[in-house]
């Protein structure tokens, strides 16, 4: 009877506090903004709760939405740590002074690409995984058209792929911007724009979300989808008839990152999470959650399905330069003018 009443009272109090302005976390809490798939976010948070006893409140939003939220909340931050999502917005947050500098003792265990990115961001963000850029094609559709399988970027400009390529719009998607920056670095500016204009004739749609082309290729809505390779792997493992290509000319990559939000209310716990998320055990969760990126800790097990960097010609992607807002505008404007506005 008393338990019942206590339960009722607690329920009532909880209901009321839920409506209270600014009812924030008590001791031992942590608010995480998570920008990978929900499927991966949840086991991560549960594992951290089990490992430390800290209560985690997690919101999953895309990295663009999270960035907008952090920016709007800057005067009175609500989140403590931002985990996951492509590196560009994290670099931007560092540039805009929205995130906190922190040097984790785990830094020494990381791959050089992760530490290099951290240095470029003045230690306001750190890499937790990496994924190479490339494309995937639908084997059923390819066989139907009797086209030779593409292996390079240059193949995508061939006339037989007319209306069969899908790629995101760099205005809205970090994936597409990574592609733009990659091609400029691989080919040089002038030839890159020539290639993009030629490929533009083959593009059936510039999607808004970066993961959409991988999905469209998996269902056959398009023949080729330009995407991060791990997104394509997820589709392939789910049974889609897709083949994954790391282009022969070399390709760029994203570094999924993590940043502590400036003015975090639970700074201590945010740092604990930061250190924990860089451990091999925490990074091993990705593979179990159908995410096949390359973990940033050298000792973390690489999911067997993940596209290995050893087999991919990776370029030396300059994140600081290509991630800056000025460079972004400098590159996207001519793309809109010369490529996007062209005839198809």
């Amino acid at each position: 009877m008393t338990t019942h009443r206590r339960l009722l009272a607690t329920g009532f109090a909880l209901g009321l506090t839920a409506l209270l302005p600014g009812a924030a976390a008590a001791q031992g809490n942590l608010t995480v903004y998570c920008s990978v798939q929900e499927e991966w976010c949840r086991p991560m948070m549960q594992a951290f709760e089990r490992a430390t006893g800290v209560r985690v409140a997690m919101t999953r939003k895309s990295s663009g939405e999270t960035m907008t939220q952090i920016r709007a909340e800057a005067a009175n931050p609500r989140g403590d740590i931002w985990w996951g999502g492509t590196g560009d917005p994290h670099m931007q947050a560092a540039e805009e002074n929205l995130t906190e500098e922190y040097r984790s003792p785990r830094m020494a265990d990381l791959h050089p690409w992760a530490t290099r990115q951290a240095e470029q961001a003045r230690f306001r963000t750190i890499g937790i995984y990496a994924g190479a850029l490339g494309y995937s094609y639908n084997t059923t559709e390819l066989a139907r058209r009797r086209i030779a399988a593409p292996t390079c970027w240059a193949d995508l400009a061939k006339p037989e792929f007319r209306g069969e390529i899908q790629v995101a719009d760099p205005n809205t998607s970090g994936t597409a911007y990574t592609m733009l920056a990659t091609l400029l670095q691989v080919m040089g500016e002038e030839p890159a724009f020539t290639f993009l204009s030629a490929m533009h004739r083959n593009v059936n749609q510039y999607t808004r979300s970066g993961a959409a082309p991988a999905r469209a290729a998996a269902t056959g809505e398009t023949l080729v989808g330009i995407t991060f390779l791990h997104d394509a792997v997820t589709q392939k493992i789910a049974g889609a008839p897709v083949e994954i290509v790391a282009p022969c000319e070399g390709t760029g990559y994203e570094i999924g990152s993590m940043s502590i939000i400036r003015g975090a209310r639970n700074m201590e716990n945010a740092r604990r999470f930061y250190d924990w998320a860089l451990t091999p055990e925490a990074q091993a969760i990705a593979g179990q959650a159908n995410s096949y990126q390359l973990p940033s800790n050298r000792n973390a097990p690489i999911p067997p399905q993940a596209p290995r960097f050893e087999n991919i010609r990776l370029i030396d992607y300059d994140f600081a330069r290509w991630g800056s807002a000025a460079e972004r505008t400098r590159v996207i404007s001519p793309w809109e003018r010369e490529v996007r506005a062209g005839a198809r």
């Binding site: 895309s62 663009g64 939405e65 960035m67 907008t68 920016r71 560009d88 917005p89 931007q92 760099p170 205005n171 809205t172 998607s173 970090g174 597409a176 911007y177 808004r208 972004r328 505008t329 996207i332």
Partner: peptide, 9 residues
């Protein structure tokens, strides 16, 4: 929406 939350804020 994308002018607010897209890659170019």
């Amino acid at each position: 929406f994308f002018a607010i939350a897209g890659a170019r804020h």
